[in-house]
């Protein structure tokens, strides 16, 4: 496959709260290639959003990157200062947020958001920036006459289109999409997914698509990274992941997705609760809920191993 654009090595992101240290991302390794889409799936609180934000070094306090490297296009982002990070943010790695209703400045015209972003990173005149902003809005399906409208005059779906245009404004290498469709209703969700898929090809960008909804991720991803309790437990190409998933958590998770074609089906769920990351379980973090757990799972943390080519899993059942 193509060349690697992003490599995360041994990343640890902890939140230092009053109650103690929350290990939101704990020893995560993963990589992505240019132009590919990685779906980052996991339950709420599994650390997937924290992982997304840490790539841009935008973890809200009291969160901190404690250890590890984030190598983007040969540069270790953890070594960069704020000023150097600003050159990366928006221009080379950009972000689409979960809630489009609150992600735009309510006092700023839609078009000015785009113009400001373009002019921050590139030496262009206002006229040139406006022209590019109009082209971007056209690409995401917004009429040019809405350039001077304010965010409150837009619906949620339309605002998310604006956020996508903003993320693509400088033709970045990677777009991190943090639950971009979760706050939208189902019909709009599919329109936005379609749009993202089309633009991903048109702009040739890589994407990290974060979602708790495995069916949404399945639509769009080339690769799947499954997160559980701050760790990646399985990482594979999308088709092998859905057909020959290895980790017990993946198995239970996929079984719990309801199938519309089978009637009379009882909803399946995974027994137990996601662990409290203040006091994570010993050994493998999934062992209290795992039907295959053995004594070793309680004692030791399994390594993430490549079982088949490009198919990684973190479980003692595979050696």
């Amino acid at each position: 496959m193509g060349e690697s654009i992003l490599e995360v090595k041994g990343l640890k992101v902890y939140y230092y709260t009053r109650e103690g240290v929350v290990r939101a991302v704990d020893n995560v390794d993963f990589f992505m290639e240019k132009g590919e889409t990685v779906g980052l799936v996991g339950e709420s609180g599994s650390g997937k959003s924290t992982l997304g934000f840490s790539i841009l070094k935008l973890i809200p306090p009291p969160g901190k990157i404690v250890d590890g490297k984030i190598i983007f296009d040969g540069i270790d982002l953890t070594e960069l200062d704020e000023k150097e990070m600003r050159e990366i943010r928006g221009k080379r790695i950009s972000m689409v947020f979960q809630d489009p209703m609150t992600s735009l400045n309510p006092l700023m015209k839609i078009g000015d958001h785009l113009v400001e972003t373009i002019m921050t990173h590139e030496e262009v005149t206002r006229e040139e920036a406006e022209e590019r902003a109009l082209a971007l809005l056209r690409d995401v399906g917004i009429m040019p006459d809405r350039f001077h409208d304010y965010p409150h005059q837009f619906s949620g779906g339309m605002r998310q289109r604006v956020m996508i245009a903003l993320a693509l404004a400088l033709n970045p290498d990677i777009v991190i999409a943090d639950e971009p469709t979760s706050a939208l209703d189902v019909i709009v969700q599919f329109q936005i997914l379609d749009l993202m898929e089309r633009l991903k090809k048109q702009y040739n960008v890589g994407m990290i698509f974060i979602s708790h909804d495995i069916s949404v991720v399945a639509e769009i991803s080339d690769k799947i990274a499954l997160m559980y309790a701050g760790q990646i437990v399985e990482y594979a190409n999308a088709i092998p992941f859905f057909e020959e998933h290895l980790h017990p958590y993946a198995e239970l998770l996929l079984q719990s997705v309801p199938n519309i074609e089978l009637s009379d089906q009882k909803l399946k769920y995974i027994p137990g609760l996601p662990p409290d990351l203040l006091h994570p379980p010993s050994g493998c973090r999934f062992h209290p809920r795992c039907p295959y757990a053995e004594s070793i799972c309680k004692e030791k943390d399994p390594p993430l191993l490549e079982i088949n080519t490009g198919h990684f899993v973190k479980c003692f059942r595979y050696k």
């Binding site: 841009l56 935008l58 943010r89 950009s94 947020f97 809630d99 992600s103 972003t117 921050t120 903003l166």
Partner: peptide, 12 residues
């Protein structure tokens, strides 16, 4: 959120 979003766009 829109402040985080502005930071994510690399604004000074």
């Amino acid at each position: 959120d829109f402040i985080t979003a502005a930071k994510a766009r690399g604004l000074p």
